[in-house]
Amino acid sequence: MASTVTLTVNGTTVTREVEERTLLVHFLRDILHLTGTHIGCDTSQCGACTVHVDGRSVKSCTMLAVQADGSTVTTIEGLAAPDGTLHPMQAAFREHHGLQCGFCTPGMVMSAVDLVRANPTPSETEIREGLEGNICRCTGYHNIVKAVMAGAEAMNGGTLKAAAE
């Protein structure tokens, strides 16, 4: 069975025919070729697929494309400014070496942005608890936590703290 869905993805409105069983993550990756959103599991545990739907972080493997009909979706590809300037959270991940293989990174950054939106000044514990739904096998989370701290400050209008040298 096919259905028609219309979404605004990274500022562009798209209308596509999809099978009803198509997950949002497959819609993004296979139909829109936005492959920055990754798939790391089949049980909605890893968070690699995290995107923003109407401004809130959502694991896009837990949502059908038809459920997102009419929504506004932001993926990692849509996070930086149109001129390419990184979002403060992206810049913080780079500055603090918050990524290694990069596979969890898009989901981690999208989750972190939403975390800070909900709690502008999170403590280390709040960051760790807030990112509990995103698994990273590479970084040991240490630098991710530092990056989110710095990213939060920068999102609040502060300057991006440099990694200690």
């Binding site: 959103t37 990184l86 780079r94 500055e95």
Partner: peptide, 14 residues
């Protein structure tokens, strides 16, 4: 700071 991060952070990894 890592050079590869530019693509990974913007969803342009391959």
């Amino acid at each position: 700071r890592r050079r590869e991060d530019a693509r990974f952070l913007t969803g342009r990894g391959s």
